[in-house]
Design a protein around this nucleic acid. Structure first.
Lengths: 353, 353
DNA sequence: CTGGATTACATAAACGATTGTGTAATTTAT
DNA sequence: ATAAATTACACAATCGTTTATGTAATCCAG
């Protein structure tokens, strides 16, 4: 059991510490530490010696010790509402990849769309001494209070996708408005004249912006806004079915639907097919998120890609900038990603009207 | 900047330490530490006092310090091949939920289906002092060497889904063989007499077992094995298309296909539809994984559900058992989850033959 | 009423790296 | 040749917990 009684450090026993290296080389731990971190006060010859021995003994620094001393670890905390579907797993994938490249590990937390969980997650991450926190807000987060503690501690904070508007924060977002605008315009260009919209909860920036883009497009075609054509919901598949029913019951039903989410537009498609209404000939459809299934349905669904991977990478990049720009205190920045419209069969009128 | 010049601890400044509590109460840090961890040597009155003040000052223990001292953190490392599709995100979701309930955070690593990455992940996690490692093997992992270091350090190790067979390890797996057996039998019961199989890489337990289940079912119907009907591949959508073409080119094509993965069966479906071959009337189809899209295609695809969430939870449970059974050294256990067959249109012959 | 258990707490040494301060030795400037 | 600067390293405190090892005080049995 006794592992410290050896003259020359052997590879045999567990973790090699800086003390081991120091003893072996007959220098102080300071020298070893500074040699490893390329400190100016260490001579090139000594540095070489240390590096070589470190490699030879396969020295692995104890992250915890460093974290304790420095008050910061090599961990990045990520808070997402949930880990399902296509979007969040992909963003997390992007984050993980970029973070690891920069020498960080990521801790995943879910808020389960609940601000109370979100608060707990913050606590957890803070006393895990994370180097930074990346977060996409839960659905019912409406204030900023629990994040102030993070800022007060000087822990870099970056939001992505779902953010609190108005507040001056670091964030990576998609240009949802532009995506919605392009999509709606596309429907209009295909000949639609009454385009309906499945809208999400309006306190969330993403859904508000998508609705705004929809309105922009209508205006650009000098079309009037008909509030009857906007259906607000949580955008589930079931609500897509219900919404479509509601639209069909209108005296003057739409000839196109743009949904702020793919599940709901899928619901609409299923309902239309069950009623024998042709897509896109009778009603054209387009969604948002470019979920995997959009390329599988018949007809395939037009949708907006959210650049999940890029968003993850950009979020980490922004975090890194914050880490490096340590001095500058109020360095706030927003990165806006451009969405990409994938036009598929569900919106392609070939020469209608 | 100076934060330690206060007689009574104020909530104002950052993290409250045990030393703060001790000073405030006029006891030693030992007492505080032990009171918080419910040590027998601390009187109930003192315990109460400490707990109360801790709550009042919102004391949050510094995980890093504890981890450093104890040599173990409250972190669980998870290594998965990738984070996409339905399976791994869902398992991770299950792991995350269960782990958090037990007071652990999870660190996610991807091996990108590469054993070299897997090795690096192990290193990363080990010197992050994780309390345990949960891993689903990369596609090209064929030996156990890099895991021996983990065991040597006494870090609990649990495999899930993709494991190395033969080795005596702790693992949570699906009964793939049973799932495949049931599915193939189902096809046979529906009247199929020539059932083909899209098989995956045979060195992976999951694909080997699925093939075995397929063979079991054939035998249970006294049907001969026709090697022509087994197509080996990586099971992508494209390979599903190609595989189906190959099968159709046979002098005596199959009347059913059971694939060890959903993507490939989707490819098969697409090809069949493009050729006007009816599913399930002419050829019945069934897949594996119960991906989201299986309920969306037309016809909907029969598939086997892998109990992703349960697998995640079971993996954490097994890990916890290992932690608690600290004394018992060679405590190895395998948990086998029962798959669930979801029968959908693609395999339902109504009275064929 | 004495000796051994039990209760309730304190002292201080870890854990492994980082870093402000100190100090020789060497180099450069004057 | 001497003061000043620079180079190259060591000492020791520190981060916040945990824990082995005391050590008083209280308690019960004999």
């Amino acid at each position: 059991m006794n592992s410290r009684n050896k003259k020359t450090a052997e590879v045999s026993d567990g973790p090699v510490s800086m003390a081991d290296l120091a003893k072996e080389l007959g220098v102080s731990m300071t020298t070893v530490s500074r040699a490893l971190s390329d400190h100016y006060s260490i001579g090139p010859a000594t540095k070489q010696k240390v590096l070589k021995l470190a490699k030879k003994l396969n020295y692995q620094p104890n992250q915890m010790a460093a974290a304790l001393r420095k008050g910061k670890s090599k961990l990045i905390g990520v808070i997402v509402p949930y880990i399902e579907g296509r979007f969040f797993p992909s963003v997390v994938h992007g984050i993980e990849t970029a973070a690891r490249k920069a020498g960080f590990s990521v801790i995943i937390c879910q808020s389960n769309e609940d601000v109370a969980h979100e608060r707990k997650n913050i606590e957890t991450l803070l006393n895990a001494q994370v180097a930074g926190i990346l977060v996409s807000l839960s659905r019912n987060t409406r204030d900023f209070k629990h994040f102030e503690k993070v800022q007060k501690r000087g822990v870099p904070l970056v939001f992505f996708d779902r953010i609190l508007e108005g507040d001056n924060v670091n964030a990576v977002v998609l240009n949802d408005r532009e995506g919605a605008y392009q999509t709606t315009r596309h429907l209009l260009e295909q000949g639609c004249r009454r385009v309906a919209h499945f809208a999400g909860l309006q306190h969330l920036n993403i859904y508000k912006n998508r609705r705004q883009g929809y309105l922009d497009a209508l205006r650009s075609f000098d079309l009037p806004l008909d509030e009857e054509l906007i259906i607000y919901s949580d955008m589930t598949l079931e609500q897509g079915v219900a919404g479509m029913k509601q639209l069909l019951a209108l005296p003057n039903p739409p000839d196109g639907v743009f949904a702020a989410g793919d599940s709901s537009i899928l619901g609409a498609l299923q309902l239309l097919k069950s009623r024998g209404i042709r897509v896109p000939q009778d009603i054209a459809l387009a969604g948002f998120s470019n979920e995997g299934f959009t390329a599988i349905t018949e007809p395939m669904l037009t949708s907006v890609d959210q650049r999940c991977e890029e968003m993850g990478q950009a979020t980490v990049r922004l975090f890194m900038e914050l880490v490096e720009a340590k001095g500058t205190p109020f360095y706030q920045r927003q990165v806006v990603l451009q969405p990409q419209l994938f036009i598929r069969e569900s919106s392609l009128h070939s020469g209608k009207r």
